[in-house]
């Protein structure tokens, strides 16, 4: 940016502050498990949103320093335990941000697996894993709390974001999608659009694909985008 060009966001003070929350989870075991594709399908069908959410997101937070090759547990297990790489790829490629609810995503997941069993390679019998390689259906209790940090300006927002934990970042970027129920949005974009009135920055942040880069890099990319407006 040219030094003489007016800074686009530096001087704006929001009417409402951005409060940084953080989140952490306690995993719960359901006692249900699958050792083959039919059982997995049945388990998914019986699963509530919290189970689907756990298996599509915990990988991201557990491996936030890695580029996820199979960004959800279903795809990972189908690939590495059942050896059905094409089905795993199809499931990995389902864009969760295309769905406004986990119920819709779950329906798509059921559809893909059912079709595979009915028409695809699944017409032949797929592998049955050993008991210690089983898919364990789990969910988690999420605890959200205020970090006590808040920003009124883009500069303050930038400075806090730089030091905030990956869990706080996850809460505002990933979980927000399902909490605010607006397609391709997140807490950061909402605040920047509505309070700082910088819609182009909000859009750039929303347009990042969070499921194909590491969370650490995603956070860095957002910080860099914000720096372009300071």
């Amino acid at each position: 940016m040219d030094d003489n060009e007016p800074r686009k966001g530096a001087g704006i003070r929001a009417g409402s502050q951005f409060r940084f929350f953080t989140r952490t989870t306690l995993p719960l075991l359901t006692g249900n498990y699958a050792v083959n594709l039919d059982q997995l399908l049945k388990g998914i069908t019986l699963s509530d949103d919290s189970i689907i959410y756990y298996h599509t997101h915990h990988y991201l937070i557990q491996h936030h320093y890695l580029t996820p090759s199979a960004p959800n547990d279903f795809a990972y297990w189908i690939n590495f335990r059942l050896g059905e790489s094409s089905l795993a790829e199809e499931i990995s490629a389902i864009d969760i941000f295309d769905y406004n609810s986990l119920g819709e995503y779950k329906a798509k997941l059921i559809n893909v697996i059912s079709n595979f069993i009915k028409y695809g390679k699944g017409k032949r019998k797929t592998r049955e894993t050993e008991i210690n390689e089983r898919f364990n259906f789990m969910k988690a209790i999420t605890f959200a709390m205020d970090t006590g940090k808040s920003a009124f300006t883009l500069q303050e927002f930038h400075d806090i974001l730089k030091t905030t934990s990956i869990f706080s970042f996850y809460y505002h970027y990933f979980e927000a999608h399902f909490r605010i129920n607006i397609k391709t949005s997140n807490d950061f974009s909402m605040w920047i659009r509505n309070e700082l009135k910088i819609p182009e920055l909000a859009k750039k942040i929303s347009n990042l694909d969070p499921y194909t880069i590491t969370m650490d890099n995603l956070k860095l990319n957002i910080i860099k985008l914000v720096e372009g407006y300071l």
Binding site: L28, L29, G31, Y33, R134, N136
Partner: peptide, 11 residues
């Protein structure tokens, strides 16, 4: 997760 059993209480 492998130690999990069918129980009536949360695990």
């Amino acid at each position: 997760p492998l130690f999990s059993k069918k129980l009536t209480i949360p695990q």
